[in-house]
């Protein structure tokens, strides 16, 4: 089985993934993604009818805590300082529109 991945498929996945790729990357990913999907496609031969999926393996269910404000390690100024650009105690980004 061969999973054909077109250039448009790569561009669509890149858009879903918020990645602006270079042309070289797109070409390489077309091959790599196709090969990886070929490999994982072998799961289709398994009969899983009536099998429940496993999303987590802890056996824990609904771990509750009180809805109370807890102190945090880092302060507002310290977190703001991590942002590439700040202004007036806010994180600055380029214009949206």
């Amino acid at each position: 089985m061969t999973t054909a991945i077109s250039r448009d498929d790569v561009l669509h996945l890149a858009q879903l993934s918020n990645l602006q790729l270079s042309d070289d990357e797109i070409t390489a990913l077309q091959t790599d993604l196709g090969n990886i999907l070929d490999y994982v496609a072998q799961l289709s031969e398994l009969d899983t009818s009536g099998v429940e999926p496993t999303y987590q393996v802890t056996d824990l269910e609904n771990v509750w805590r009180q809805d109370e404000i807890q102190p945090v390690d880092a302060g507002r100024e310290q977190l703001l300082a991590l942002a590439p650009q700040q202004q007036d105690h806010q994180i600055k980004v380029p214009k949206v529109l």
């Binding site: 994982v40 799961l43 398994l46 999926p53």
Partner: peptide
């Protein structure tokens, strides 16, 4: 893909 893998995971477990 995703759902099938999570079902297969149950069989492995």
């Amino acid at each position: 893909y995703y759902l099938q893998a999570q079902k297969a995971r149950t069989l492995l477990i």
